[in-house]
Amino acid sequence: MGYPKFTIKKSENDKYYFNLYAKNYEVIATSQMYKTKSGCINGINSVKINAPEAEIEDMS
């Protein structure tokens, strides 16, 4: 599998989360914790659909 990519992981408290990796293999996003793997997959799909439209808000 190439990069960029999403990885699904299971935490020590049995919840699922995902990391989004860039082409340079760096983690660029980590999700919230999900109770189910299907919830985690839905979160990935949401990012895939909504991120291209995300605006940047500079609060610095």
Rank of each mutant, 00 (worst) to 15 (best):
K5N: 08
S60K: 08
E55W: 11
Y17I: 02
Q32L: 01
N19H: 09
P4Q: 08
T36V: 00
S11T: 02
Y34W: 08
M33S: 06
S31W: 09
I49C: 07
A29Q: 12
N42M: 02
F18H: 05
N45E: 14
K5I: 00
I44C: 09
S60P: 07
E57R: 13
Y3I: 00
A51Y: 11
E55V: 07
S11N: 12
E53Q: 14
T36A: 04
A22Q: 10
T30R: 12
A29S: 12
A51P: 08
S60I: 00
E57A: 11
Y25N: 11
C40E: 14
K35W: 00
S11A: 09
K10A: 04
V47N: 10
V47T: 08
N45T: 11
S38K: 13
S38L: 04
G2Y: 05
S11Y: 01
P4T: 09
I44P: 10
K37W: 04
K15W: 01
P4F: 06
M33Y: 09
F6T: 01
V27A: 12
I28L: 13
Y3G: 03
S60E: 14
M33A: 02
Y16F: 14
C40P: 11
D14S: 05
E26W: 07
F18Q: 07
K23R: 13
L20D: 10
Y34L: 02
F6W: 11
T7H: 05
Q32N: 06
S60M: 03
I41M: 11
C40N: 15
T36N: 09
S60Y: 12
N13Y: 06
V47K: 04
K10V: 01
E55C: 09
V47C: 06
Y21K: 15
I28G: 13
S31L: 05
Y34F: 12
K10C: 11
N50T: 05
Y25W: 11
A29P: 02
N19F: 02
G2I: 01
A54G: 11
E26S: 12
P4K: 08
M1H: 14
Y16R: 10
N24W: 03
E53V: 01
A22N: 14
K15Y: 03
E53M: 04
N13A: 10
A22M: 05
Y16T: 02
Y16W: 15
K35F: 00
D58G: 05
K5W: 00
T7M: 02
G39A: 08
E53S: 08
K5Q: 08
E53F: 09
K35V: 02
K23E: 05
D58V: 00
I49H: 10
G43P: 04
S11Q: 01
K48F: 02
L20I: 07
I44E: 13
N19G: 01
Y21C: 10
I41F: 04
P4D: 12
L20G: 11
G39R: 15
A51W: 06
T36R: 07
E55N: 15
N13P: 06
N13C: 08
Y3Q: 05
Y16E: 14
A51V: 08
N19V: 00
A54K: 09
I49V: 01
E55H: 12
V47A: 06
E12H: 04
K9N: 14
I56R: 15
S38V: 09
S46W: 08
K23W: 02
I49N: 07
A29D: 10
N50Q: 11
K10S: 12
N50A: 03
Y16A: 01
E55I: 10
N42K: 15
